[in-house]
């Protein structure tokens, strides 16, 4: 009978104790934080409203002060090309050249001409520009062509000397041709005949510089003194190199303010105008801005909302009158901006 009583009381005590221990662990594992009660409001369709922190507001980043707008859109050129990727202006005659893999369009000012065949077949999108002597530099994904009466082509796919993976810009001054290869994250230097001379970047520890290119956007241009500027997009900086390709200085910082660059990798494109000012194009928050030669923010050329949001790059060019040409690669138009009152 004693055993029975022990059983009776023991089991009771044991079980309740087990429960209490469990409960204690439950309670102790809980550190009281701030428990804001989830206020579930209903929207019109009878669905619970989303908590505010799930909203990710892009609109905030797109704000700008209209007083900072320096340029107005002058005109828009329909290209009629399927996938235009390259845009350049011949500063000598003011002709605008838009290039796609299937052909090119020469525009005289704002008046579009006819789509003509390319002088050379391009493997994939690349870049286009005019050289110092008026020769046309036409680059595909991994091959550069110098077109001036004769066509000189060089480069092939790879990461070795004189090889390319993903050319995003090709520019030439009086002596050299520079190619920006986003795939290899380097800038290569060639002479005007296409002979390899050297490279900048590519973990070039000696030069102390390295290009950080997370996405296929890496642009270049020369200023009036012949210095080479390269957009180190991953660092959100523009870097200055001497005509020989030696690093000199850089500017640019990241942030959400209008004078800063936002995103992982900006500016995706830039161009230097006659006054040595920088015109920069950004993706993410699609906008074109203007900086002076020291990197001081001057104003907005094209505010957010100007371009189709699907654009991930906006190839730029300026003509001798400092009009800014921007290629909307989604809507396949060249948009021309000029300073207000021009």
């Amino acid at each position: 009978m004693d055993r029975k009583i022990i059983f009776k009381n023991g089991i009771w005590i044991l079980l309740v104790a087990a429960g209490l221990v469990g409960g204690y662990f439950m309670a102790s594992s809980y550190i009281p934080g701030n428990t804001a009660v989830n206020e579930v409001k209903s929207d019109g369709a009878g669905n619970p409203a989303l908590p505010e922190n799930f909203k990710y507001d892009m609109a905030k980043l797109k704000q700008y002060d209209p007083r900072q707008l320096l340029y107005g859109e002058e005109t828009k050129i329909k290209t009629g090309l399927k996938e235009p990727f390259g845009l350049t202006v011949n500063k000598k005659d003011g002709r605008v050249l838009v290039v796609s893999t299937e052909g090119m369009l020469v525009c005289d000012g704002a008046i579009a001409g006819k789509v003509a065949a390319l002088p050379v077949r391009l493997e994939g999108p690349g870049s286009v520009s005019f050289g110092f002597a008026g020769e046309l530099l036409l680059a595909g994904r991994d091959r550069v062509n110098i077109v001036s009466g004769t066509i000189i082509g060089f480069g092939k796919k790879g990461k070795g000397v004189g090889e390319f993976k993903y050319i995003t810009s090709v520019k030439a001054n009086a002596k050299y041709i520079f190619t920006a290869d986003a795939g290899n994250r380097r800038v290569c230097k060639f002479d005007l005949k296409g002979k390899y001379l050297g490279q900048i970047g590519r973990k070039d520890k000696a030069a102390g510089k390295n290009f950080v290119i997370p996405s296929p956007h890496m642009d270049m241009d020369f200023d009036s003194k012949g210095n080479l500027w390269v957009a180190n997009a991953g660092l959100l900086q523009l870097e200055k190199y001497s005509p020989e390709g030696v690093f000199v200085s850089s500017w640019g910082k990241h942030g959400i303010n209008i004078d800063e660059f936002i995103g992982c990798c900006n500016p995706v494109n830039f161009v230097i105008d006659g006054g040595d000012n920088f015109i920069t194009a950004e993706k993410g928050v699609l906008r074109i801005k203007k900086y002076d030669k020291t990197g001081k923010f001057l104003g907005v050329v094209a505010p957010p909302g100007t371009f189709n949001e699907k654009n991930t790059s906006i190839p730029l060019a300026v003509d001798s009158k400092n009009r800014v040409y921007a290629l909307d690669t989604i809507e396949k138009t060249v948009r021309v901006f000029s300073e207000k009152g021009y």
């Binding site: 950080v212 997370p214 996405s215 991953g234 660092l235 959100l236 990241h254 992982c264 990798c265 993410g284």
Partner: peptide, 9 residues
Amino acid sequence: LCGYCNLCF
């Protein structure tokens, strides 16, 4: 597809 960005949004 990742760019291994330092400044990842």
